Computed example of a mutant assay.
Amino acid sequence: MSSSTCIFGGNLNFDHACQEWQIFKDRFVQFCIANDITEENDAAGLKRRALLLTALVDETYRVVKDLASPTLLDNVEYKALVALLDLHLEPKRCSFAESIKTPGA
């Protein structure tokens, strides 16, 4: 994606207090595809990290910053950043509750 290319997909925003992380993450991947930001042309993940961080509302940014501490977010790789968010924002499953669910329930 060259600097003169316009960005497709509008601006994305993510607020962990009222949005579902998995849905946003899926939309973010589609946003990157639409804007031709791929593993091949962003191998270091710098663009994807920058886009992801700028999509976070202030409070969510603070949460991510705290999760990464003492490492500065500029030094956290894109994949590691997504992993931090996955670990913190994905709903925790109770293995006991899952094991007693009946099929079709």
Rank of each mutant, 00 (worst) to 15 (best):
M1R: 09
M1C: 01
S2D: 05
S4T: 14
T5W: 04
T5S: 13
C6Y: 06
C6T: 14
C6F: 12
F8K: 07
F8P: 02
F8T: 03
F8C: 01
G9T: 00
N11I: 08
N11F: 05
N11V: 10
F14L: 06
D15Q: 05
D15W: 04
H16G: 04
H16K: 02
A17S: 12
Q19M: 15
Q19P: 04
Q19H: 12
Q19T: 10
Q19F: 09
E20T: 13
W21P: 02
Q22E: 14
I23P: 03
F24C: 07
K25G: 03
K25W: 11
D26F: 04
D26E: 14
R27S: 09
R27E: 05
R27W: 00
Q30Y: 03
I33M: 01
I33Q: 09
A34L: 10
A34Q: 08
A34V: 01
A34I: 02
A34M: 09
N35G: 06
N35Q: 05
D36R: 09
D36G: 01
I37P: 06
I37T: 05
T38S: 15
T38K: 10
T38D: 05
T38R: 11
E39H: 14
E39Y: 13
N41V: 01
D42C: 08
D42P: 10
A43M: 02
A43F: 06
A44E: 12
G45N: 07
G45E: 07
G45R: 08
G45D: 11
L46K: 10
K47D: 03
K47Y: 08
K47M: 08
R48D: 08
R49S: 13
R49G: 08
L52F: 14
L52A: 09
L52W: 06
T54L: 05
T54I: 00
L56G: 10
V57W: 04
V57T: 10
V57E: 09
T60P: 06
R62V: 09
K65H: 15
K65Y: 14
K65C: 15
D66G: 14
D66M: 13
A68H: 11
A68T: 14
P70Q: 04
L72E: 15
L72M: 10
L73I: 10
L73M: 11
L73Q: 14
N75C: 08
V76T: 07
V76E: 05
Y78A: 10
K79T: 15
A80F: 08
A80D: 15
L81M: 15
L81E: 12
L81S: 12
V82I: 15
V82Q: 12
L84D: 11
L85N: 09
L85Y: 07
L85M: 15
L85F: 04
L85V: 05
D86S: 05
L87I: 07
L87P: 03
L89W: 07
P91M: 01
P91G: 01
K92L: 12
R93I: 09
C94T: 03
C94F: 00
S95Y: 01
S95C: 00
F96G: 02
A97W: 07
E98H: 02
S99M: 04
S99D: 00
S99E: 00
I100D: 05
K101T: 01
K101F: 01
T102D: 00
T102N: 00
P103S: 05
A105M: 05
